[in-house]
């Protein structure tokens, strides 16, 4: 149960954390002038009116980075328990973790050889 006690603190923190930025933003809302007009509220791009849809199609490159990152993220997550228990592991268990990293290093080498990680 003590785990939950600790996390109650995190919960309270989570509730309060947004209030810190909201307070100055709210204060600014009270004091600031507000005279919007059509021209002022236009999208600020380069002086002329913006053309077309903003949400244009992006390159597949970003998606590949996202995917590779996801794979590594999952690996890191699995690596943390191994690192925490590291001092109590025997050689076999250590080797298991080592192999795990090695297999993913392989994936990185593959991505490297296929040239997908180069920003084009």
């Amino acid at each position: 149960m003590s785990v939950l006690n600790e996390w109650a603190f995190v919960g309270v923190f989570l509730l309060l954390a947004p209030i810190f930025p909201i307070l100055p933003m709210g204060a600014a809302w009270l004091f600031r002038p507000s005279k919007p007009n059509v021209i002022k509220n236009q999208t600020y791009e380069c002086g002329v009116e913006t053309i077309g849809d903003t949400w244009v199609q992006f390159r597949v490159q970003y998606y590949i980075y996202g995917l590779v990152f996801l794979v590594f993220d999952v690996e890191m997550v699995l690596l943390f328990p191994w690192a925490v228990a590291y001092n109590q592991l025997d050689l076999f268990a250590f080797g298991a973790g080592f192999l795990f990293i090695f297999l993913l290093a392989d994936a990185l080498i593959y991505a490297w050889k296929k040239d997908v990680l180069v920003w084009k």
């Binding site: 597949v60 590949i64 298991a96 994936a107 593959y110 997908v116």
Partner: peptide, 29 residues
Amino acid sequence: VLPFEVASLLLTAAMIGAIVIAREADDEE
């Protein structure tokens, strides 16, 4: 330990698969 290593293999396979598919999409584009 076995699922752990299989997970590693799975992640590797996922990455290779993703790269292959993404490269095809890139070439098409």
